[in-house]
């Protein structure tokens, strides 16, 4: 117990609850309108998707193009159960069903295909995603190509917010755990880590299944927020959308995935009234990032309170930041002087 009650953990708790409080306050006083609440819900679902794909792509280095399929499994499990049993119980049961089915499906695909590498894996997961979509398309219970409509909207910002928190806790802790370290070593050099005695396939499967399960949670939230689901929503294009967020934010950086989902979501909102410019601006944004920040918005950066050891450290923070800012300014000044000279 004592190991958990550290200052960084405390800081995170305060941060998470504080942010939630701020969000509620802003909604209460009308700064965040109903429209922004829906936009934020969509962004939140994208955050979960991006973080879960980041676990597979950024931490363990496996290039998966079938992530939307797991979202689809969750969405359909959630949608079907919710239609039978409206309310939070239905959503919870749907989420459980989605977690179970997506874990099974991920296991079935992971065990044979994660022996593949790079392009081969990408193609195998792409094919798998299509298989899931076509199965959904041909099942009676999923209502085939017409999809499900009139799904009760039970998810709200609170549910989505705490699912994001849960996802981040799971993924960030996984990243720093022994299996997580093993996954990172696999990403860096698979042959070397195998030589060190790491059972590579096992760890890749663990990361893949975990990522798939979290994606199915996002699917459940999608189905219970936006009324309608169809097999086409979970096709290849959606996988690419998730991939774009991950690469945009920085592979391996969870902070990056959160920030990227937010930035892209806001850009998207601003451009809703400009259909013609929309595709161009969105694409230009991505190209700019890739040209100037090839490692993504955040690179490897991770927001962290880990360096805080005691309360003194917190008190020292403002001074530390001040020093840092001054240092950056001084460096810029130096540089300009050099350029002038």
């Amino acid at each position: 117990m004592k190991r958990w009650l550290t200052l960084p953990t405390l800081c995170w708790c305060v941060f998470a609850i504080g942010l939630y409080g701020l969000l509620q306050l802003l909604i209460e006083i009308g700064v965040i309108s109903v429209v922004w609440q829906i936009t934020l819900a969509n962004i939140g679902i994208n955050v979960i998707l991006a973080v879960s794909l980041n676990l597979i792509l950024g931490i363990s280095g496996q290039f998966s193009l079938g992530h939307a399929a797991f979202m689809g499994i969750g969405a359909y499990a959630g949608g079907i159960v919710l239609k039978m049993l409206p309310g939070y119980t239905g959503m919870l049961l749907g989420a459980l069903a989605g977690l179970l089915i997506s874990a099974l499906a991920a296991l079935v695909i992971a065990v044979p295909t994660l022996r593949l590498r790079g392009d081969y894996l990408a193609i195998a997961t792409l094919g798998f995603g299509e298989i899931i979509r076509i199965i959904i398309n041909n099942m009676k219970i999923t209502n085939g190509a017409a999809g499900l409509s009139n799904i009760p909207a039970v998810a709200n910002l609170t549910v989505i917010y705490f699912t994001i928190v849960l996802t981040l806790i799971i993924v960030c802790n996984f990243k720093n755990s022994a299996p997580g370290r093993a996954c990172i070593s696999i990403k860096e050099d698979e042959i070397a880590s195998e030589a060190m005695g790491i059972p590579t396939t096992r760890y890749k499967v663990i990361a893949f299944v975990l990522g798939a399960m979290l994606a199915s949670l996002a699917g459940v939230l999608y189905a219970s927020s936006f009324y309608v689901i169809k097999p086409t929503y979970f096709a290849f294009a959606q996988s690419i959308n998730i991939l774009v967020i991950v690469v945009f934010g920085g592979m391996g950086s969870m902070t990056g995935s959160v920030v990227a989902a937010l930035v892209l979501g806001v850009i998207n909102y601003l451009l809703q009234s400009l259909p013609n410019e929309r595709m161009i601006v969105y694409a230009v944004a991505i190209i700019l990032i890739m040209v100037f920040r090839p490692k993504g918005l955040m690179g490897n950066f991770e927001l962290s309170f880990a360096r805080l050891k005691s309360l003194q450290d917190i008190k020292a923070l403002p001074a530390l930041w001040k020093d840092k800012i001054l240092a950056v300014l001084a460096r810029l000044k130096n540089k300009r002087q050099k350029e002038d000279a």
Partner: peptide, 13 residues
């Protein structure tokens, strides 16, 4: 005029 980009989430928004 708004573009929903054939996306249920954006349509709701």
């Amino acid at each position: 005029k708004y573009d929903n980009a054939y996306n249920a989430a954006e349509t709701s928004a």
